[in-house]
Amino acid sequence: MIRRRVVVAGVVQGVFFRDTCRREAAAAGVAGWVRNLPDGRVEAVFEGPQDAVERMVAWCGRGPSRAVVEERRVSEEPPEGLTGFEVRPTAW
């Protein structure tokens, strides 16, 4: 099990990024969460098998069809044992 935190910038809010991320994560069998940030970026945390988490990190570099991802920052973190995947409220 591994954990990655991803922050993406560009046209990533108002394009169904969070909902599509939730569906992609569920299909990949990845736990975690995704939320909008007040500065227009999106932040996500993925936990699960390495190949599935890497698949989600790669997906964040593209996002859904209406997104324009200009930057993607990825950091490693120790897994916390999350279960399920949720869309969290915007971090104010």
Rank of each mutant, 00 (worst) to 15 (best):
G40D: 10
W59E: 04
F46M: 12
R22G: 06
G61P: 13
E43F: 06
V87W: 07
P38R: 12
D19A: 15
R72I: 06
V53R: 00
G63F: 08
E43V: 03
A28Q: 02
R35S: 09
R41Y: 04
R4Y: 00
I2H: 10
V30Y: 00
I2T: 04
D19I: 09
R72T: 12
V69K: 09
E76K: 02
R35A: 12
V68T: 13
W59F: 14
V74L: 05
G81I: 06
G81W: 06
G14L: 09
E77Q: 10
S75T: 12
G14I: 03
F17M: 03
W33N: 05
D19N: 15
E24N: 08
P79C: 04
E77C: 07
R88I: 05
R62L: 13
R55I: 03
R62K: 13
V6C: 02
A67W: 03
E80Q: 15
R23E: 13
A91S: 14
V69D: 13
R22I: 04
R72P: 00
R88E: 15
G10A: 06
E24G: 08
V34N: 01
V30G: 02
G32S: 12
E70G: 14
V53L: 00
G14W: 06
A52F: 00
V69P: 02
R66F: 06
R5E: 11
P38L: 12
E24A: 14
T83G: 14
P79G: 02
A28W: 02
G14Q: 12
F17L: 06
L82S: 04
C60N: 11
E70R: 14
E80M: 08
W33C: 03
V45D: 01
D39A: 04
E47T: 09
V69G: 00
V30L: 04
W92V: 13
R23T: 14
V15C: 02
G81H: 03
A9C: 12
G48R: 00
A44Y: 02
S65N: 09
G14S: 05
G10Q: 07
A25L: 01
P38E: 13
V11Q: 08
P64R: 10
A25V: 00
N36I: 05
V8P: 06
P89E: 11
S65C: 11
G40S: 11
R55K: 12
A9F: 08
V11D: 04
G10L: 08
E86T: 12
R23Q: 13
A44P: 08
V69Y: 04
M1Q: 09
F46I: 05
T90D: 09
E86C: 11
E71D: 15
A44E: 00
G10P: 10
